[in-house]
Simulated assay, not measured.
Amino acid sequence: MILVTGATGRIGREVLRRLPADQAVRVLARNPDRVTGAPGTAEIVQGDYGDSQSLTRALRGVRAAFLVTSRVGDDDVRFVRAAVSAGVRHVVKLSAAAVADPGANDVITRWQRANEDLVRGSGMEWTLLRPRAFMSNALAWAESVRAQHVVRAQYGSSPNACVDPRDVADVAVRALTEAGHAGRTYTLTGPEPITAAQQTAQLAELLGRPLRFEELGADQARAALGARYPHDLVEALLAGAERQRAGAKARMDEAVPALLGRPAACFRVWARDHLGSFSSP
């Protein structure tokens, strides 16, 4: 039995779609009605990391688990404790590429470093996935692209080797279903670094209409992010943007092509496949 968490998010949803049809799958979801793409035989369990009884139910009989957490706090601690008690043998943990950057010391990165240490020290087999930023982050521009034909972002000329979430999911499925991934850490990037201005140009070409890129200053970005996130997360995201401007996120890794036997997907492919989100109704 494989347990998938984060099944309503961008990676977990794609993992569910890619697991073999004959694989026993269980899904832990806070809102089961939002789970899509699960195999017809999948068992969906309602629960939350803060509900120890739901974790016990979800982890019963599980061999391997895909662990995704998004709230800075103790969710990983609760899950790992329950997984060890349930006899889970292997945890595939979604982390972040910034963990390996000595210049990254924001609250999100410190939290992920602690989570990695927790998993490594759990006594279970583990695999750590460290993706660079997801190409799907561009969906944050969809509304302004549709309504105003504009993309607004910080530091439009700073590159990021962002990765297609579907490539991350493909790697996760291999780690969950194949031997040979225990004790491994994989940094997952796209095939090339790309800037927000270049992404805007590619979107415009695919849409067949001009788009304008507007660079946000630090205060504008802080205000925009502050409308969506708490203060500590806002500051973490701004710190990440500064590291990107310094070139810290441009480095590529060969893990995706090495593991999947094909090139990592480029932004143009991701954008083409999601063009409907940017198209006017």
Rank of each mutant, 00 (worst) to 15 (best):
T8F: 13
G9C: 14
R10N: 14
L19R: 08
N31C: 04
V35D: 05
G37I: 09
G40M: 03
E43Y: 05
V45H: 08
D51M: 12
T56M: 08
A64P: 01
R71T: 15
D74C: 03
D76E: 15
V77H: 06
V77M: 02
R78F: 06
F79Y: 11
V80G: 01
V84K: 03
G87T: 11
V88Q: 05
R89H: 11
H90Q: 07
V91E: 05
V92C: 13
D106Q: 07
I108M: 14
R113W: 02
R113D: 05
G123N: 01
E125W: 10
T127H: 03
L128A: 02
N137Y: 13
E143V: 13
R146E: 09
R146C: 10
R146L: 11
H149P: 01
V150Y: 00
Y155E: 14
N160S: 13
V163N: 00
V163Y: 02
P165V: 10
P165N: 11
V168N: 01
D170K: 03
A172H: 09
V173A: 07
R174K: 12
A175I: 12
E178L: 08
A179T: 15
G183P: 13
R184N: 02
R184A: 11
Y186M: 06
P193Q: 10
A197W: 02
T200K: 01
A201N: 09
A204P: 04
G208E: 07
P210F: 05
L211R: 04
A221E: 12
R222M: 00
A223H: 15
G226S: 09
A236N: 02
G240Y: 00
E242I: 08
Q244P: 01
R245Q: 12
R245W: 13
G247I: 13
K249F: 14
K249T: 13
G261H: 12
P263F: 09
A264C: 04
A265N: 10
F267Q: 09
R272D: 09
H274D: 02
G276F: 00
S279Y: 11
